[in-house]
Design a protein around this nucleic acid. Structure first.
Lengths: 342, 342
DNA sequence: GTGAAAGCGCTAACAT
DNA sequence: ATGTTAGCGCTTTCAC
């Protein structure tokens, strides 16, 4: 039925030319008031809706942006997408969304699809910002883009993140100050997340500064929710770990669950620290101690920066947003501190 | 620099016509092998990328779909979007995402923007499926769409959901069976969520069946995370509520937190039930007892149905997917059950 | 197997 | 203030 009225139909119906209709839509000020009304009436009657594809073809820009995140299942990403989407809506930009499932292959494909869609720019989280085919492609093709959560070494790459290494360092020092000496880190696969690696580096550096060199690193897949087996060994050995630093909150929450199953109390027997500061961390028992990132704000800022890049008003730059340690009951003093004052 | 090679550039470079280039892209079988290779080579050299807007303008369909959810901050929506996105990617469809923040006004605007983008169809969760300007608009404009989570009365509207009333009924019966007689429901604003209302109806019906008529209803905004004040009254009065049914898991988790702050133990003093079955519910202590919806699968099915509607192979229909009660420790016997066998 | 040309719906000179 | 017209990049008859 409603075979989509075109501008011509509107023009015909209101007895003007298509140019005038176009003007009514884009620059109503340049058209006589009376004509404007006639045309608007015709549009309403015909239930006219401009075909954005015609416009885009002409304008050579789409007023849309692409967003690529590893997954929406981790609230840290969902929240920033929420922030991006809000800002984008306010700016009249359409958001095209895709997820990579932490796979570098999917990343490349997904970005390619986004580019096929002629997005004006992209916001994305890649597995490894310092060695990314996607980043190279975008740079080569001269497409405005902003990395989110990634913290690239190259300062000429636009990025919005927290200082991953530094914040992991902070968290580790916090645990050292609580008397812990026996550490382990549970980290998402480095090959899937440079953030995870950077956080590990901060962790290791803090320990090195305290003269601790033997903290085990446990890399896990991002789907692993059952940490019981993998943690059993280090938590129950003869030199049991008392402080578990996790590279994100999802892992931390899973770790707390695993501890419990192993009959260990958190934080009495083992302290658990997380990363990201997702909302549920504050709702669980014990409240999760975490490095809080301003996720929503990061999304907004990423979009703001991207808009600048698109218009050419901004140059690519790395934004390091402030992080902080949330208060939380998942961290306590080391049970092994007996007679050894720090 | 890279002023975007067009099909003409490729044609010129490879000494053929644009028609042939187009064929190489769309029907390589119809072109001589040798030509195909020449053209492909030219495309590679020129770093050619088809302009989808030209194609869309011509084809009058966009191979894109719009997705509208209340928020991405609730995992129940984030997860289904994840499911939609996965399926869409597999089907070569682009996803345009927007959020309404539970506002009917935003809904209308957002859908309008999506339609401006000439999406082939939409998947959306509206505040009230039975009285929705958006649903009317889509129906009028004859745009394929599938409601997600909404459970409309009209069976001719395509929808994918669980049976909200029935599942709330199930949950309430479960609590009745545990000996509870003093109920309250904590529900998201009915004006923002028809699901919430439907769940309340199931709740009320179950209680009516048990001869209980005075269970308080507490409607809260979707941003309310602090339930302490609002729950204090009913949990500590002279006839304290022992069973709290919440219209979603976020509320339930917040409710458990509130109980704790009020000095009440869950489930010893008060049982708390949730809705949705989000993953974190299984990670908190006590494990949340909830009505589980197959969120991811619902997203996938919604997309599958939408695809059918778009191609015309399917007719609109309401899909009711099975729900189940998760095991959880947030529900226990009523502490008031002393000598009163059910 | 390949090319010429029309046209998708829109915008923007340019003309009146 | 309004109309005419030439494309934007692509697909698709229809010829050859």
């Amino acid at each position: 039925m409603n075979a989509k009225a075109t501008m011509r139909d509107v023009a015909r119906k209101s007895g003007v030319s298509v140019a005038t209709v176009s003007r009514v839509i884009n620059f109503p000020g340049e058209v006589r008031q009376e004509t404007v009304e006639t045309v608007n009436a015709a549009m309403r009657v015909l239930n006219y809706r401009p075909n954005i594809n015609g416009r885009r073809l002409k304008a050579a820009q789409s007023r849309s942006i692409g967003v690529l995140v590893p997954t929406l299942s981790n609230p840290v990403f969902a929240d920033s997408v929420q922030g991006i989407e809000q800002e984008a809506r306010a700016a009249g930009l359409t958001v095209l969304l895709t997820a990579s499932n932490y796979s570098a292959e999917h990343e490349a494909e997904a970005v390619s699809t986004l580019l096929d869609n002629r997005v004006d720019g992209l916001i994305l989280t890649v597995t490894n910002a310092d060695d990314s085919p996607v980043v190279r492609m975008l740079t080569r093709e001269n497409i405005p883009f902003v990395l989110l959560y990634n913290q690239p070494t190259n300062p000429d790459i636009a990025a919005v993140s927290v200082d991953n290494a530094q914040s992991a360092h902070d968290m580790t020092c916090h645990l050292l100050a609580a008397g812990h000496r026996n550490f382990a880190m549970v980290a998402g696969r480095f090959s899937s997340s440079d953030r995870s690696r950077q956080r590990y580096e901060g962790f290791a550096r803090a320990l090195a500064g305290a003269g601790i060199a033997d903290a085990p690193l446990i890399e896990v897949g991002f789907e692993d929710t059952d940490l019981e087996n993998v943690l059993g060994g280090i938590l129950q050995g003869e030199k049991p770990v008392t402080a578990l630093v996790c590279s994100n909150d999802i892992l931390a929450i899973a770790a707390i669950g695993a501890c419990r199953k192993l009959g260990l109390r958190v934080p009495d027997d083992v302290s658990v620290a997380g990363f990201d500061g997702i909302a549920v961390g504050g709702l669980i028992q014990p409240k999760l101690c975490s490095v809080v990132q301003p996720t929503h704000e990061m999304g907004r800022q990423a979009l703001a920066l991207l808009r600048g890049l698109i218009t050419g008003e901004a140059k690519p730059r790395s934004l390091l947003l402030p992080h902080y340690l949330s208060e939380g009951e998942s961290i306590g003093p080391s049970r092994l501190v007996t007679s050894c004052p720090l």
